[in-house]
């Protein structure tokens, strides 16, 4: 690790101010950032921990029925506190990493990082959630911009994420055997207005919506509707753990299983 300054403010405003300096970086649960620092792959001048900011903590149900999760809320807390208000999201959070990771890692950190194999991006995109920052609100469809890339500006903090709650939803995660991130993860949410299918782990462009499957399921919400639908393997990730073709195939299988579990 290189030397850095450390601040732990208690308000969003103070955090924004602290992040104003050159090469300052937000620190959530540190589950991604700290290993990166230990390997000397990043050299921020200052880390600004957001975990002491009360207004970024917790899960609550808004007046319009949506579920808002504070940007610094840990996966473990979402798994426990959203279990009733948004069970599929809680189940997703409960499948991230191991207990140590879940008790430190945060939703804001995960979504800001946008790892192509991370779980939350699928939940956020699949739900059509709104990402709320210190300056603006963004639709999930505009937020994720490819592997490790998002619409966040430098120093911008995810303060909360608002999830409209679907009639039914399911996250189907196929584990990468080593990391146990998603080799392929499919988040399917069924709203009155239509079905959303978001896929993580599979694509070289990061999380994406599988629109053909959405269309088919909007017409007929049964697994039969998916028969013959195939993802083009071309843009899929191919690596030690699975070829492009295998990942494309898994997208179909996981989507089918998500439909079954929503039926």
């Amino acid at each position: 690790m290189y030397n850095f300054e450390f601040e732990k403010p208690s308000t969003i405003a103070d955090a924004v101010a602290a992040l104003g300096g050159e090469d300052a970086q937000a620190l959530g649960g540190g589950q991604t950032l700290i290993p990166t620092l230990k390997q000397r792959l990043a050299a921020p001048s200052k880390l600004v921990s957001v975990s002491g900011i009360a207004e970024m903590q917790g899960v609550c149900v808004e007046d319009d029925g949506s579920v808002a999760v504070g940007g610094a809320t840990t996966h473990a807390r979402v798994a426990a506190d959203a279990a009733r208000s948004y069970p599929a999201l809680a189940a997703l959070a409960g499948q991230i990493g191991d207990p140590a990771v879940r008790n430190r890692g945060t939703i804001g950190g995960s979504v800001a990082n946008n790892d192509p194999a991370a779980c939350y991006p699928a939940g956020v995109l699949g739900s059509g959630a709104t990402i709320v920052t210190n300056t603006r609100q963004m639709a999930a469809d505009d937020f994720f911009q490819g592997m490790f890339t998002t619409a966040l500006d430098e120093g911008e903090i995810i303060t909360s994420i608002r999830f409209p709650v679907p009639q039914a939803a399911s996250y189907q995660k196929f584990l990468q055997p080593a990391s146990r991130f998603a080799l392929v993860g499919v988040y399917l949410a069924r709203f009155a207005g239509g079905v959303r299918v978001a896929v993580t782990g599979a694509s070289e462009d990061g999380v994406f919506r599988w629109s053909e499957a959405e269309e088919a399921l909007n017409k007929d919400f049964r697994t039969d509707a998916l028969m013959g639908l195939r993802i083009n393997p071309m843009n899929m990730i191919g690596d030690l753990h699975g070829s492009k073709e295998y990942r494309a195939h898994l997208v179909s299988v996981m989507t089918k299983r998500a439909v079954e579990s929503c039926a």
Binding site: P177, A178, S179, F181, D239, L240, H241
Partner: peptide, 24 residues
């Protein structure tokens, strides 16, 4: 039998250089 594989790429770089890719 099921999980572990120490793999190198064609340049001799370890592909499974951490527990992210080496499955215990």
């Amino acid at each position: 039998a099921l999980l572990e594989n120490c793999a190198y790429d064609e340049n001799g770089q370890l592909l499974s250089a951490s527990f992210m890719d080496y499955a215990m």
